[in-house]
């Protein structure tokens, strides 16, 4: 095996709580190891070079959605990005745009997602009369259950929000994550909300009719969720609502 290469990380640094600090890019160098991910590299940088470096990881397995950042211009999950994917050994890291900056590469996606869930009421609203936990459950079509799981694989990483041109221009736009979740509950036979109910929430410029269909969301989604299909589905549903009124 050839000797390991040195890779360079150009990292956005800024501490918004320090009145004397200004945003800047700082370059660090590190010796690459086999199988190295951006997760491994950032931790080594923190441990060996700069313990003040802020970033967020939790599962480090592409499951929890904590670590989205912009890597060489593309928003994605850092934990499963291999340094070997960058032949020139130069990696530029920026925090995810569209979210409150906590510091360096750490952004507040949690606050954003909670507010979105409250605003769009992103929880199942079943018929309370059906519910008795001691008795046999209500049957559900197996194909429907499988389909709901596919749509539910969203990890709220925020990549679709940062990859969305509409969202960058219009702060109140619900983004692909919001529409994906609405579509998930709309399709769920257990949910009692009607298409009209959802129309009130996303049948406007902040929702399905604001989307410019650039589909950065679908291109960048680390879970390969079918954003285009779901947004189109919701548009048809919402359009039908207007026609039927």
């Amino acid at each position: 095996m050839s000797s390991p290469r040195t890779i360079s990380f150009e990292i956005f640094r800024y501490d918004p709580q320090d009145p004397n600090d200004k945003p800047k890019m700082v370059t660090y160098e590190i010796t690459e190891a086999p199988g190295m991910t951006v997760f491994i590299a950032l931790n080594l940088l923190r441990e060996q070079q700069d313990p003040s470096l802020q970033f967020d990881f939790v599962c480090r397995a592409g499951i929890c959605g904590s670590c989205a950042m912009v890597i060489n211009g593309k928003p994605t999950l850092a934990c499963r990005t291999l340094t070997a994917n960058f032949p020139d050994g130069k990696i530029k890291l920026m925090p995810l745009p569209g979210f409150e900056l906590i510091g360096d590469l750490s952004v507040n996606t949690g606050k954003f997602m909670r507010e979105l869930a409250e605003r769009l009421q992103l929880w199942l609203q079943p018929d309370a009369n059906d519910i008795d936990i001691h008795r046999l459950e209500t049957p559900m079509d197996p194909a429907e259950a499988a389909k709901l799981y596919e749509l539910e694989r969203c990890v709220e990483c925020g990549v679709c929000v940062s990859a969305c041109a509409t969202k960058q221009m219009k702060d109140t736009f619900v983004g692909a994550v919001g529409m994906m979740k609405i579509a998930r509950f709309e399709m769920d036979s257990r949910d009692t909300r009607s298409a009209e109910d959802f129309y009130h929430v996303i049948g406007n410029q902040d929702g399905v009719f604001g989307c410019m269909t650039l589909l950065g969301c679908q291109d960048a989604c680390p879970k390969d969720l079918p954003h285009m299909q779901q947004i189109a589905y919701l548009r048809r549903k919402m359009a039908q609502t207007i026609v039927s009124c």
């Binding site: 209500t138 559900m140 197996p142 769920d188």
Partner: peptide, 14 residues
């Protein structure tokens, strides 16, 4: 608990 979770939205495999 499994049945309660079905009512809270878990799409259990059927």
């Amino acid at each position: 608990a499994v049945r309660e979770l079905a009512n809270w939205g878990v799409p259990w495999s059927r």
